[in-house]
Design a protein around this nucleic acid. Sequence first.
DNA 1: TTCAAAGTTGTTTTT
DNA 2: CAACTTTGAA
Length: 725
Amino acid sequence: MNFDIDYLRSQLNDVQYQAVLGYDGPQLLLAGAGSGKTRVLTYKLASLVRNRGVAPHQVLAVTFTNKAAREMKTRVAKILETPCSFPWLGTFHSVCARILRMYAEHLGYTSSFTIYDRDDQKRLVKKILKQAGDEKIKPESVIYNISNFKNNYISFDGAAAMASGGYDLRIAKYYSQYQKGLKANNAMDFDDLIFLTISLLKQQEEVRERFKNSVRYVLIDEFQDTNKAQFQLIQLLLGPHNNITVVGDDDQSIYGWRGAEVTNILNFGDYFSNLNTVKMEQNYRSTKNILGVASSVIKHNRERHNKTIWTANDDGEKIVLLENENENQEAEKIIRQLKNDDTFSNGETAIFYRTNAQSRVLEDQLRRHNIPYMVLGGIRFYDRKEVKDVLAYLHVLVNPKDSVSFGRIINTPRRGIGNKTIEMFTDMALQNNTTLFEAFCTVENAYNGTAAEKKIASFLKIYRALEAAVQQESSLAEKVDAVIELSGYHAFLKESGIEDDRDRLENVAEFVAAAADFENRNPGKGLAEFLQEISLYTQEDEVKVRQSSVTLMTVHSAKGLEFSRVFLTGLEDGLFPLIRDADNADIEEERRLFYVAVTRAEKKLVLSFATSRRTWGNAVFADPSRFINEIEPHFLTRETGMARVTAPKTGRHYEPVEDQYIPNYEEECEGPAFFQGQHVQHKLFGMGTILKTEGFGESARLVIRFQDGNPKKMIPKFAKLTVLD
DNA sequence: TTCAAAGTTGTTTTT
DNA sequence: CAACTTTGAA
Ligand SMILES: Nc1ncnc2c1ncn2[C@@H]1O[C@H](COP(=O)(O)OP(=O)(O)OP(=O)(O)O)[C@@H](O)[C@H]1O
């Protein structure tokens, strides 16, 4: 159909168009920010299906985040005007998880394996370190080392073989024990998803051939941030035709600290003799001034491919540089700048920072100004303790070998089964070479046993009930709800009386709603699939209201996104570039990070720094970032005016709040007003006196001393309080 | 076994 | 500074 070719021409420039048509053989698109790399990949995918008769399941397309994958799916469906499913479009991790679910048995796992997150990994490593009696080494650094090995596809034997010195040997030993522990638990960590898929493809010739034959085209976005293991994986999946398109920008490589190898993209030609390299030089995203700032800074890097980049867009506004005395003034001035635009909360404004901790001051100030915002990063919904507790129950029910999750649920909620009992049964299990669960089962019917045994027997009774509930023919949400109910978790939260537990109960209810939602979106899929989706969830996936708020995030999470207005904050030497250890600082990667941040902006860019910043309680002074000095001055307008700002009250001003804030103007004025010294009545705690008030309406928080003498924090929105005065 | 109080860590960045 | 972990008393 000619229509499609004309359509392609109308949507792409010449170079992009040629890149899309270069279907066969290896192709590398090395191009600067905003040049349409992702766009080319998207149109290529659509065109392969439409013009080349390639079936969706024959394309392996890898994106950096799940969100990017979803967007690509949506775009392609729109271009093709038909919804179609691409089973092999996703992140490396989700694609691998899918492969492993199909073939886990070949590796000695079952297909219902659990994916361990950071927290689970830490629990397992801690257990190993405790057994080894090694308290000196931090679990985090063990995890970090193991992860490095896996990113380079080095097994524990390999790690032991290349060890030099006692420390290396210890790490190798823990790596080996950790890996065996994971396998015994029928669990994999994030890096295993890649690692074990490589192992699978290496070991199982039929599986490998199956993929090589069925995958006709491979497309990879953000190739500059792939690691060695991922590169190996691609080589194993790629058929003899070498139909592979990789896309990236070496200047945007910002995950070196996690094993990403820029050389994957820079030396790509070494692996494919007939490589077709395409360079795209026109930027469609940003104004000339924004691009000027980006280029003038990035050219200070020595290890890079020099690239021309230009734009037909306007000069646009000059870049504003805000100079501030401290972080509060910075936040205040940003908000003032932001309010210059009356469309500041239409979802097209973003505030970036180098470290997550910096978001707090900005949040405080935004809330104070009643500006709706959302924060990416920090604690995700599924990372909350109460949600993870419920998840642990579900994980055990899907994968009974998951001892880490099992350890989490034994005494949650409190059942009087403490450390000592657990230790005793762990020893017993170790001696009989069984699992802790099996050790428990030996006293399942011992009603005449010790107090501890009775408690275990009653726990097992609960466990059996949970098993039965999950087997039932019922909806996913009903099953989840039954687990929360039967485990006693619901009652525990409801009756605890601690104010925070009321919030937790709401989150648990929200989790049941999430299960219902999952079932809606994926009819026919069950608990195991639900758990996998959650395990692979990323920050970006949290459904939040970008449309009507200001978005706050780290520069790392901003990769690949674009915003009309961008505020880049905390530009102080030592913070951005972040220098923790002067000898090992990677300034070039920091500079690339700066480049990524700046090139997210379409129309307006504001840079800011603070001469002093409060860190761990005391003010730290710093010079403006060296990157600011690298900007050619004619792009900038400096704003020095040290306007007085109202410093927030010192002390406890910050309360942990939802990572999303939408002011509710009506309710702000409603509800009874509380004051210090007022007497109130609470359903559970009886009469009390208000010691302290904070905030108003929905966001109000109170500290109340009840009859028992203990002050308690309460939120009147949830706590049913009756005013007595 | 459990809770509260004292002590101690940490801030990169995340799929 | 604040979140987390360990310690000690009941
Ligand atoms: N030929 C074109 N015509 C119109 N708009 C274009 C064209 N090419 C790219 N764009 C637009 O430019 C912006 C950047 O494109 P895209 O996100 O694909 O670039 P990228 O190279 O992947 O960027 P980055 O590497 O910075 O993430 C998008 O808004 C895209 O729609």
